[in-house]
Design a binder for these strands. Structure first.
Lengths: 203, 203
DNA sequence: CGCCAGGTTGAAGAGAATCAAGTGATGTGG
DNA sequence: CCACATCACTTGATTCTCTTCAACCTGGCG
C-alpha cells in the first residue's frame, strides 16, 4: 500500500507561507501565464488541475507537469517562464507575490521541480507500456485515492505528457486492462487492479 | 584546439564563492559519488569532464548531464543524490563543503539544473536527427570553440544521454556528414560545417 | 433522438532497435 | 617496430515498436 500522500509532491512544507491573495478562477483551458512572461509569482491551487506546456517548432506540444489541488507552481529555473500554464479543468487558485517569497520555500519548491523534471527525463526514455504505467502510478500517488484514479485530463494531455500519441496511449491502456493490471470504469476513471504489475512495468 | 570554457552554462556567478578544498584527481571512469549518497557537497571541475547517470531496472543507463571544466555540480533536488557521478576523462576537481553553501549560489545552481533538465525533457521528445543535432549544438555552445567540437565522451555516453543506441548515433552522424552539416575529422573531433542546418533540425 | 468531440480499434508504414559483421584505432608483448 | 589482441566505431540486414491514416464507437448534450 502507498503512503496517503497527505501533501502531494509539489506542496511546500505546511505553514511556511499562507497565500493571502484572493482566490482567482480560471475556466477550463484558460491560460494562467505564457511562456516568456516574467516569472514573479507563485500560484497555489485551491481546486482544479493545471498543466504546463511548450509548443515545439514543428507544432508538437510537450507537457511539462500537471499540478493538482494543493500544489504550488509557477517557479522556473530563470526569471522567465519556460512553459505556459493552463487550467485543465475549471480551477481556483491563490496568487503569491514575489515579494512574499522566502528563500526556504523557493528552494524547497525548486528542489521538487528539479526532481520531477529528472523523473520525467527517465520516463521519456522508456517504452510506451512503461510510460503509461508510470503515469498512472504517479497520478495515483498524488491523488488521494483508494486504487480508483480519476484523471482530470484528456488522452491528448496524457499523450503530450508522456511523449506518445493518443492512439498509443489508448491502445496501451486497453492492453493493461487485458492484462488485468487496470480496469477502465469510464475513460477517465481507472481502477488500479494490480499495482505490482504496474510497478514492475515502471522499470 | 582545447577547451577554455571560461563560463559554461552551469557556472555560478563569478566571485560568489571560491572553493578552498584541495583539488582532487579522478582517473577516467572513476566514481565521484553514487546515487543514494548524501548530497552535502558541491564539486567544481578544474579540468576534465563528468557525467551523471542512473541505471534503470532493466539495465539501461540514462545520462542526466555532462559537466565541463569550470562547471559546478553535485546539487540535486533532495538531500540524496538521484544520480551517480563519474569522470568521463581524467578529471581534477575542488570540493565545496555544505557548510560553505550560500543560498544565492544554491538557488542559482538549482535554477540552471532545472532549466537543463527541462531542455533535456524536450530533447528526449525529438527524433534521432534532432537529438543528435541538439547535442552537438549544446556541446558547441558550452565548449568555447571555433566550430570544431572536441567531444570528451564516447558514442555510448552520447547514446545514453540522448536516449538512442550507439548505432543510431553513429548512423545519424554519418547522415549529417553526407548532408554537409558536419565533418567528422576523427570520431571525437567534429567540425560544424553548417550551423543553420543543425539549428533547423534542433526543432 | 441525432449530432459531435473524445476515445477506441484497425491496417499500413516509418523510424529506431537489434543482431551481426566488418573496419579502424589503440595498446601490448615479442 | 611489427604482429596481435582489444576496444570503439561504423555499416548492413532484419525486426519490432510506435506513428500515421482511417474508420468506427460512445457518451454528453443541443
Amino acid at each position: 500500500m502507498r503512503k496517503q500522500a497527505a501533501a502531494s509532491p509539489l506542496t511546500p512544507a505546511a505553514g511556511l507561507i499562507e497565500p493571502e491573495g484572493l482566490p482567482t478562477s480560471f475556466p477550463r483551458d484558460a491560460t494562467i501565464y505564457r511562456e516568456g512572461g516574467r516569472a514573479d509569482r507563485l500560484y497555489k491551487i485551491v481546486t482544479g488541475t493545471v498543466r504546463t506546456h511548450k509548443i515545439l517548432l514543428d507544432g508538437r506540444r510537450q507537457i511539462g507537469s500537471f499540478y493538482l489541488a494543493g500544489d504550488t507552481f509557477g517557479l522556473e529555473g530563470g526569471d522567465q517562464h519556460a512553459f505556459s500554464a493552463e487550467a485543465v479543468t475549471d480551477t481556483e487558485l491563490r496568487v503569491i507575490k514575489l515579494s512574499e517569497w522566502e528563500k526556504e520555500l523557493v528552494l524547497a519548491l525548486m528542489g521538487r521541480e528539479l526532481q520531477h523534471a529528472q523523473d520525467h527525463q527517465l520516463l521519456l526514455a522508456k517504452t510506451a507500456r512503461e510510460r503509461v504505467a508510470s503515469f498512472l502510478l504517479e497520478m495515483s500517488d498524488r491523488i488521494r485515492s483508494t486504487d480508483e484514479v480519476e484523471l482530470p485530463m484528456s488522452r491528448q494531455d496524457i499523450a503530450d505528457y508522456v511523449g506518445l500519441t493518443t492512439e498509443t496511449v489508448s491502445r496501451t491502456l486497453t492492453e493493461l486492462e487485458h492484462q488485468s493490471a487496470i480496469a477502465l470504469t469510464t475513460s477517465k476513471l481507472i481502477a488500479l487492479r494490480n499495482r505490482a504489475t504496474l510497478s514492475r512495468l515502471r522499470a
